[in-house]
């Protein structure tokens, strides 16, 4: 690809996002009630409980698991199920509905053989919540890959989060926004390498650094 082809691709507008936490007045004190909740809450609630922790604890390595896994392991002390729920490979799901079904399947299978149902201590019930997400353009726009790299180093983690996580799962796009733009620029290898990352296994700062390294490595023609 030559330079004139690259210039016809639209510049990359960096967006950011902010989440408002909505309380649903629905709680669970044991696995059965948790399952009932997972079956009936909105997709925005499933998204909240499988992603909010990434933003709240994005600096921790290792990161705590999703809210369901954390509660099952640390409050109910059901370590086997907690591990199974924590290990669900969120990246492979392209739709919230499919992710929900996976949680249901794992918990139902556990309940078939469970010898007892443990209740959480009083006051430590699982509270279902949901996100209302506000998306807004930032002042950063990249015309070229080198501008993109420079901006990526200074955007907020919420912006990074929006383009990587929200684009792929909540908005049900097939790839993250960065890979999509790299591909349109003609940087196919870079697009593929960024797409290959499992962002759920990085801290957000680690993810930012990794993408910058990939741009440096594969961003040259």
């Amino acid at each position: 690809m030559n330079q004139s082809q690259a210039t016809i691709v639209e510049p990359f507008q960096f967006y950011s996002k902010a989440d408002q936490t909505v309380l649903l007045d629905k709680k669970a004190k044991n696995i059965r009630e948790l399952l009932d909740g997972i079956k009936t809450v909105s997709g925005a609630s499933i998204y909240f409980h499988t992603h909010k922790f990434l933003q709240q604890h994005h600096y921790l390595s290792p990161e705590p698991p999703n809210d369901f896994g954390y509660w099952i392991t640390n409050v109910l002390n059901e370590e086997v199920l907690g591990e199974q729920i924590s290990a669900i490979d969120i990246i492979q799901f392209k739709k919230i509905a499919d992710l929900r079904l996976q949680f249901i399947e794992v918990i139902e299978s556990y309940l078939q053989t469970a010898e007892r149902i443990v209740d959480a201590p009083r006051g430590e019930e699982f509270h279902f919540m949901a996100s209302q997400t506000f998306v807004y353009p930032t002042s950063y726009v990249a015309q070229t890959l080198s501008e993109f790299k420079e901006i990526l180093a200074k955007i907020s983690i919420h912006s990074l989060y929006f383009h990587i996580f929200d684009a792929s799962l909540r908005l049900e796009q097939h790839e993250n926004d960065f890979s999509n733009w790299f591909r349109r620029l003609g940087h196919t290898r870079l697009a593929d390498e960024v797409l290959r990352l499992d962002p759920y296994t990085f801290t957000l700062e680690g993810l930012r650094e990794k993408i910058i390294i990939l741009i440096e490595r594969y961003g040259k023609h």
């Binding site: 902010a18 989440d19 408002q20 909105s42 997709g43 925005a44 949901a130 996100s131 209302q132 997400t133 506000f134 998306v135 807004y136 909540r170 908005l171």
Partner: peptide
């Protein structure tokens, strides 16, 4: 402060995802 700004904005916008 961010949470307060969001709740003020949410009075004028409905839906799970809001594009400002």
């Amino acid at each position: 402060i961010k949470d307060y700004l969001l709740i003020f904005l949410s009075l004028f916008h409905k839906g799970d995802i809001i594009y400002l």
